[in-house]
Amino acid sequence: MHWRKLLRVLHRDIGYIAAGLTIIYAISGIAVNHIQDWNPNYKIEKSTIILDSLPKNATKDEIVVYVLKAINEKGEVKNTYRSSPNELEIFVEGNTILVNYLTKEVKQEKVNSRFFLKETNDLHLNKPKGLWTYIADIFAVALLFLAISGLFLIKGKNGIKGRGWWLTLIGFGIPLLFWLYYL
């Protein structure tokens, strides 16, 4: 088999395998690149309600039970904290609740994972470690192979000896220029 034909076959087959991983990494990369604009892992919902009343002369635990029932929160209480004489914070899995005794105001901050994005971001940032590190390394080597083999797939003026050379230099130049600019 001619070397260029073998290269094409390997490039094609490895490319198909790498396509799914590339899409996952690309989606995650876009999400993480804009972390200053939004939280790509979690959706945070803030809400405020005012209760009609709070029980008078009730213990902290009684107020916690009353408030959770009033806002229809069924999660397990992880902790409570008296942040001031007039405020009580209640921590439930995925929800932080602030109760103001004077105004009867209940502020909630619910945190929910963004389906699919959180998982892809965790993989992209190698949070699982262990076996995933080796999979990511193999993927990186596959991308390196695809990039290098792709340089030699086409012959002639459109290949690496023609315009391919200049386009490859531009590809190297873009990150180099940014690196020099931000240094």
Rank of each mutant, 00 (worst) to 15 (best):
A147K: 03
K127L: 05
V106N: 00
V77Q: 05
V64D: 06
D137G: 15
V67I: 10
I174K: 00
N41A: 06
I63Q: 03
I17M: 11
W132R: 08
T120N: 09
A140N: 14
G156W: 03
K74F: 04
K43G: 07
K161M: 08
N86C: 00
F145I: 13
I24R: 06
E89M: 14
I160G: 05
F172W: 02
F178T: 05
N86G: 01
A140L: 13
K157W: 07
T103W: 00
F115V: 10
V64E: 11
N39C: 08
V99H: 08
V92D: 12
L88Y: 01
N112R: 12
K60N: 10
E109Y: 04
A19S: 12
L144G: 15
S28N: 05
I27G: 08
I30L: 15
G162V: 10
T80V: 13
S28K: 05
K5R: 15
I35D: 12
W179Y: 15
K155E: 12
K43M: 08
K104F: 06
E87H: 14
L125R: 13
I23N: 04
L98W: 04
F172Q: 00
I23F: 14
F139A: 15
W179F: 14
N72R: 14
A26I: 10
I50C: 01
L180M: 10
L51H: 00
F172M: 04
T59H: 01
E105K: 14
P55M: 00
K5M: 10
I148C: 07
E87A: 03
V65R: 13
V65D: 14
Y182G: 07
G94W: 11
A142N: 12
R8E: 07
G75S: 15
G20F: 15
L21Q: 07
I154H: 04
L98E: 05
Y25E: 06
E45I: 12
K118V: 06
S113K: 15
S53I: 00
N86I: 09
N100S: 08
W165A: 07
L88T: 02
L169T: 00
N126E: 06
P40F: 11
L169I: 09
W38R: 08
L177E: 02
W165H: 08
I170A: 03
A70W: 01
V92G: 09
K118P: 06
V92Q: 10
I170H: 00
F115S: 09
V67M: 08
K118N: 13
L68W: 03
I35R: 13
E93P: 12
N41S: 13
L167Q: 07
G164M: 09
E76G: 09
S83A: 13
F116Y: 13
N126P: 03
I135A: 14
T168R: 01
